[in-house]
């Protein structure tokens, strides 16, 4: 079962299912990189709401996916990191670098709207 990627206007939305395997992560990265170009998408939301933990492998993979998406010309945003997951990540010393994060899908799309409308004026 691979990670579903939906198209919504000029955005792509990837909803991570619980505990994806390494190959599912890889496939999602490839799919996103491909479709961003094919569909001329301007933003990508990766929704991790259902993940009950993010370890160093998942954090690194999310970073790689976001960087790839950016190189392909779209704005990446990661949404839905749960309170316990966020706290555990910082205690482990895991970061997502300068990738944008938002509370949920709705906020993520609103942020992409703002970035694409005003340019990257966000803090």
């Amino acid at each position: 079962m691979s990670i579903p990627i939906l198209r919504q206007g000029s955005y792509l939305i990837a909803s991570i299912q619980s505990s994806p395997s390494d190959s599912e992560w890889r496939e999602m990265g490839q799919q996103l990189a491909e479709r961003v170009g094919k569909l001329r998408s301007r933003g990508v939301v990766v929704d991790v709401t259902v993940l009950d933990l993010i370890d160093s492998f998942a954090a690194r993979t999310l970073r790689e996916i976001a960087q790839t998406v950016k190189l392909r010309g779209a704005e990446p945003v990661i949404v839905g990191i749960q309170p316990d997951v966020a706290f555990s990540m910082v205690q482990l010393g895991l970061t997502l670098g300068d990738i944008e994060t938002e509370l949920d899908l709705e906020e993520g799309m609103a942020m992409l709207d703002a970035i694409l409308r005003d340019g990257r004026t966000n803090v």
């Binding site: 009950d52 933990l53 993010i54 370890d55 160093s56 492998f57 309170p83 316990d84 997951v85 706290f87 555990s88 205690q91 482990l92």
Partner: peptide, 17 residues
């Protein structure tokens, strides 16, 4: 607590990997 569960599970994930 759910926070502690997440910490321990993350640690196991690192060790297993």
């Amino acid at each position: 607590s759910s926070g502690e569960q997440t910490l321990v599970a993350t640690c196991v994930s690192e060790l297993a990997r």
